[in-house]
């Protein structure tokens, strides 16, 4: 095989076949894999979760992950926060002519590794190659299917959320944004923060299986915590109050935010879930989350209130109050 991707790899002919066999099947498939036009899945349930996402992050390798890991985690997490158990994923690649094959291999390997961790199968895929300059190295689309072990459809709609329910986050905010910013190396600032990119399905299933009354979940990605909470406030017709002093943010992330004028509440994450939980179950949920390595820093950060419907209010560290609005404009482009 060549050291670099050429247009020929997307031709559909011999070179394409070689690429599929030597890279994709080698990582994603098993010995029995037969190439056909579609994967045949056996899904007994009558209700499935179905999602899709595209990944264009720049740079493609960053501290704590790469575009491949992100592409699997992102789709797994979208399924998991709906209360579904992720089962199958498809992966489509748009490659830029000239991409080093070793980079592609590394990306595909980390996709396979994450799929294994998340216990999902990558069952179908596609590859296209475009002329140099027509895309930036590699873009990936993943689509996923998950199944429900119980009817959790209320988790996506937020219909069961009540006043006094507590808001939980499973750890430090903003690590992903800062890691990507670091990797871009545009500002001679080094934070040594790694992206939190991770598959959250096991963490979430642990809490669901313990019959905890989790009423709403979202993964906190682009737009950050502030945006997710505003989306929720819009749906539920109650107010949301955040206690800013309890929101976990690493010191180095805070420091960078101070220098650059960012607010950690608006930074992107790739391994964070926001849960709205019945007040009585809150401590148990925290205990369950903290047993998982992805939930050690879980915290209660606020609650649902009857005041100021549809508005998110933050109690600031100095005891003041402010409205936390949705993200306006783009804080950092191409973060996932």
């Amino acid at each position: 095989m060549n050291d670099f991707i050429t247009l020929n790899h997307g031709s559909g002919g011999r070179a394409s076949q070689d690429l599929i066999k030597n890279i994709f099947i080698k990582s994603f498939g098993d010995n029995k894999t037969v190439l056909s036009d579609s994967a045949i899945l056996n899904i007994p349930e009558d209700r499935i979760a179905f999602t899709t996402d595209s990944f264009v992050i720049d740079p493609i390798f960053f501290p704590g992950g790469d575009i491949g890991k992100l592409a699997v985690c992102g789709t797994v997490n979208d399924l998991a926060v709906s209360g579904a158990v992720p089962k199958y994923i498809t992966a489509s690649f748009i490659l830029e002519e000239g991409l080093p094959v070793k980079d592609l291999k590394q990306i595909v390997n980390s996709m396979a590794e994450q799929a294994k961790i998340a216990n999902v199968k990558i069952v179908a895929g596609d590859t296209k190659v475009v002329h140099k300059g027509k895309c930036d190295k590699i873009f990936i689309n993943t689509t996923g299917i998950g199944v429900f072990e119980k009817d959790y459809s209320y988790i996506s709609t937020g219909e069961k959320v009540q006043i006094n329910d507590k808001i939980i986050i499973n750890g430090f905010l903003g690590d992903h944004s800062v890691a990507v910013l670091d990797a871009r190396n545009e500002m001679d600032l080094k934070s040594n923060v790694e992206s939190d990119c991770a598959c959250l399905n096991e963490l979430i299933q642990n809490a669901l299986k313990a019959d905890m009354r989790i009423k709403f979940m979202r993964d906190v990605t682009r737009g950050g915590l502030a945006t997710v909470l505003n989306e929720l406030a819009e749906i539920i017709n109650y107010g949301i109050e955040l206690d800013e002093k309890n929101i976990p943010v690493r010191e180095s992330v805070n420091g960078l935010c101070e220098i650059l004028g960012f607010d950690p509440l608006y930074l992107a994450n790739e391994g964070k879930v926001l849960m709205i939980v019945n007040a009585e179950d809150t401590n148990n949920v925290i205990k369950i989350l903290q047993k998982n390595s992805l939930g050690v820093e879980s915290k209660i950060i606020g609650e649902i209130v009857s005041d100021h419907p549809k508005i998110v209010v933050g109690k600031t560290k100095i005891g003041g109050k402010r409205i936390i609005d949705m993200l306006q404009g783009e804080q950092l482009p191409r973060i996932c």
Binding site: D263, G314, T316, K317, I318, G319, G320, R322
Partner: peptide, 9 residues
């Protein structure tokens, strides 16, 4: 002033 909610104080 607005970020820290100074007017409310």
């Amino acid at each position: 002033i607005h970020r820290f909610g100074i007017p409310s104080l």
